[in-house]
Amino acid sequence: MPDMPVFPPLSDADWPALADGMQDGFAGRLNVYRTMAYNPALLKAWAPLRQHVVLDNALGAQLSEVAILRTGVRLGSSYEWGQHVVRARACGMDDARIGSIRGRAEGMAPQDATIARAVDELFDQKRLSPAIQAALVDMVGTAGLFDVIATVGFYSTLGYILNSCDTPLDEDIAAELDARPLAGEPDPADRKGARS
């Protein structure tokens, strides 16, 4: 069996000329984008979609984090989970709410459960049922329904990159999670060896 290629996050010294200047913005702040930089054309094309999905979506910060966290759970991406535990805390979500996103929808707050069910349907059925579509439109509008779908697709692509490349969790996020672990999370020493 051939050796697997290794794609560690690119350093500034190895940054590709085609993505020049991007390391000073969002792309340089996270290991996932430093890994994506192996394909600088993809990274450049990714930027405007990232602006909408991450910052300008119709879901609002907290429901967006619910969708991202549930997507990370479904992908088995410890990187996405860790990054977004920290981001969810930063936008005002408490640890009990964050932790509930790993479990059954019945154990979540009603809005979170609707988002989680939508994520699960997209993974399991590859489409949203009429009932979930109606619930989403009622809760976040038509734009929000499409933003849920886009968020799952966007973060699935990132999760596939992270899992395929074993991208390590960013040091600042790992340090924050070591200092303030989420209840029920693996011991920090165990997490360091986990797939990203």
Rank of each mutant, 00 (worst) to 15 (best):
S64E: 13
G72E: 06
D187N: 06
R89D: 09
L30D: 00
A90H: 10
T114P: 08
V152L: 05
R74D: 02
L43E: 03
M139T: 13
E185R: 06
V148D: 10
P5M: 12
Q62A: 14
V86E: 15
E80T: 13
G28E: 00
E121T: 08
Q62K: 15
L59D: 09
Y79F: 13
F154A: 05
R29G: 14
G21A: 04
L122Q: 14
R50S: 14
C91G: 01
G144V: 12
S100K: 09
P188D: 03
V53R: 14
G184D: 01
F7T: 05
L122G: 07
E65K: 06
T142W: 09
M36T: 01
R127M: 15
Y38D: 07
G153I: 07
G92C: 13
L69D: 04
A61R: 15
I115A: 08
P9E: 05
Y79A: 08
D20V: 00
E185M: 12
D95F: 05
P5G: 03
I98W: 09
A19R: 02
T35L: 00
V85H: 10
R97W: 05
D138T: 14
G25I: 01
A109R: 14
R180C: 05
E121C: 09
A19S: 10
A135I: 04
I173K: 05
I68M: 03
V32C: 03
Y155R: 04
P186Q: 04
F123K: 06
A134C: 12
L177C: 03
S196M: 04
D56S: 15
R191A: 15
P186C: 01
P181T: 07
Y38I: 08
M4N: 05
G153V: 02
M4H: 10
P48W: 14
T142G: 10
G107H: 13
E185W: 11
G28S: 02
S64V: 05
L75R: 04
L63K: 11
L169C: 08
A131I: 09
G21P: 03
Q23I: 11
Y160T: 12
A90D: 10
G72R: 01
D147W: 10
P188G: 06
T167N: 00
L162T: 00
P188S: 06
Y79I: 01
G60P: 04
T167Q: 00
R34D: 01
A105S: 12
D24R: 11
Q133F: 03
R127D: 11
R97S: 13
S78I: 00
L128D: 03
N39D: 13
M93N: 02
M36I: 15
L49C: 06
R50Y: 09
D138V: 07
C91H: 08
L75D: 07
L18R: 15
P48V: 11
A13K: 12
A47E: 12
F154K: 04
R34M: 00
Y79N: 07
Y38T: 07
T167G: 00
T35I: 07
M108Q: 15
D166C: 06
T35W: 02
A113I: 08
A175Q: 12
